[in-house]
Design a protein around this nucleic acid. Structure first.
Length: 244
DNA sequence: TAGGCCATCTGGTCCT
DNA sequence: AGGACCAGATGGCCTA
């Protein structure tokens, strides 16, 4: 049976962890608490190993000396449980705080992604782009806009050599001047591990707006509007697809 | 029901 | 020491 001190400390520890909104970590907490609430005898081996060794020589024979020894053991046991509980409590509170910060950090990241989604051309059916789609789409969109500006500066109508229209990440697909190496992994896992992989079959995905027969884009296009973007840009840029 | 996406927890590492 | 960042694990939800 745990003494009053052990019980109160363990209860305090469990209460502190359960008072948080942290639910998934709660199970392990309960296990830890259960461990902490084990009877003092459960923390036994060190105690039994010391049996009879300390104390005044010759005095442990009397009943009074045996009582004192037992009391000392009980105190040591209580102190040990108390320090373990405090350590656990400290670790737990740090973990809970770290979880809170991490949650907040991810919320900020998601908010930034939402902000990014809000400035990207939207689809009519209110489909929310996934995170990876948002990033890919944003990349392509920025590139397309930059390309539009560049072509406008050159007085070109929007056509041009295919090579010139490829974003740097697609360069490995083609012979030509070197450009920054693409990091295929950064484009996520799955079928389209890189823009180049996506470029292999630009219109193959029937769910892609670009695959639709009546697909158009440009000012006023209800499906997939990239304001001011030269129309043939899409068809000359295999990487220019929001979906993989 | 399998697979994709997501939120959350967690422990490790790096930075201030 | 504490916070930020990261990647792995896990479980829930949704859809084909």
């Amino acid at each position: 049976m745990p003494g009053p001190l052990e019980t109160s400390l363990s209860d305090l520890d469990c209460a502190s962890s359960s008072s948080t909104s942290d639910l998934s970590g709660f199970l392990t907490d309960e296990e830890d608490c259960a461990r902490l609430q084990q009877p003092t005898s459960a923390s036994g081996p060190p105690m039994t190993a010391r049996k009879g060794s300390p104390g005044i020589p010759g005095a442990s024979d009397t009943p009074r000396a045996q009582d004192d020894e037992q009391e000392r053991r009980r105190r040591r046991g209580r102190a040990r449980v108390r320090s373990e509980a405090l350590l656990h409590s400290l670790r737990r509170s740090r973990r809970v705080k770290a979880n809170d910060r991490e949650r907040n950090r991810m919320h900020n990241l998601n908010a930034a992604l939402d902000a990014l989604r809000s400035v990207l051309p939207s689809f009519p059916d209110d489909t929310k782009l996934t995170k990876i789609e948002t990033l890919r789409f944003a990349y392509n969109y920025i590139w397309a806009l930059a390309e539009t500006l560049r072509l406008a500066d050159q007085g070109l109508p929007g056509g041009g050599a295919r090579e010139r229209l490829l974003p740097p990440q697609c360069a490995p697909c083609l012979p030509g001047p070197p450009s920054p190496a693409s990091d295929a992994e950064s484009w996520g896992s799955g079928a389209a591990a890189s823009p180049c992989a996506a470029a292999a079959s630009p219109l193959s995905d029937p769910s892609s707006p670009a695959a639709s027969e009546d697909f158009t884009y440009g000012p006023g296009d209800p499906l997939f509007s990239f304001p001011g973007l030269p129309k043939d840009l899409l068809h000359t840029t295999p990487c220019f697809i929001p979906y993989h």
